[in-house]
Write a protein that binds this DNA or RNA. Structure first.
Lengths: 113, 113
DNA sequence: AAGGTCGGTCAGTCACGACTTACCGTTAGA
DNA sequence: TCTAACGGTAAGTCGTGACTGACCGACCTT
């Protein structure tokens, strides 16, 4: 089990999505799988740059490529998005708990005066 | 003027969480509100660095500060985490849809041969 | 085969951001 | 009031990563 090649982990995904160009690529991929040339055509950067970004996204587990003939179609990888969502869920719970605790202490302090 | 304190937008949040030190700060804040000095004490960087990181997190809508006496207690801002989660939800939906569409096309192509 | 397209990689440049030390205003105790 | 602690800002250094053009192999044409 869990024979993941590299175990992307949420932190790497944040770094992957930090770059505006990479987010633009992700946005473009939301429409469906696309080859590198088409992606580069819709972006203000060169094709090699897109290729490098796609490598980062793939390593982070956010994208995957399927070769068909001459081209490689890249698509979003739901697993990557999901692992990020899981991380945010726990963060969310802790944030709410800390928030409630702070509110309680404030109410207590106010009641004391 | 339209100073927009409540328009962090998900993109900025990704950039904010891309830095390891900033993620460590967020992790520390999960335990509850803490002053700058305490945060810096638990990190391998100087206090000014922490101060700068806290500014980035605050601008991104992920943290907020409440001054009490001499110190400023920083805490996680649930709204920031929530806006990020909303963004991921739509991304998730699109990823699944594109995935299903790709699977359909593949099945069709296989059926054609 | 031969020419054309697609796309990954290499080498090099350049800007940005993550640090540091030094400094300053503010608040709490003596 | 004077002094010490807290913490935000300024100025400067340095490493990292985003980009480009050049090169190369792989595959689909005719």
């Amino acid at each position: 089990m869990t024979d993941r090649p590299s175990t992307p982990a949420a932190p790497d995904i944040f770094a992957a999505l930090a770059d505006p160009t990479r987010r633009a690529i992700v946005e473009a991929l939301r429409a469906g799988p696309q080859p590198v040339g088409v992606l580069a055509g819709g972006l203000p950067v060169s094709r090699p740059a897109v290729s490098q970004h796609l490598k980062v996204l793939t390593d982070a587990g956010l994208a995957r490529a399927t070769a068909r003939g001459n081209r490689r179609y890249y698509s979003l990888a739901p697993e990557g998005v999901e692992s990020l969502r899981r991380y945010l869920d726990t963060l969310w719970d802790d944030a709410l708990a800390a928030f409630a605790r702070a509110a309680d202490e404030k109410a207590e302090a106010k009641a004391r005066e």
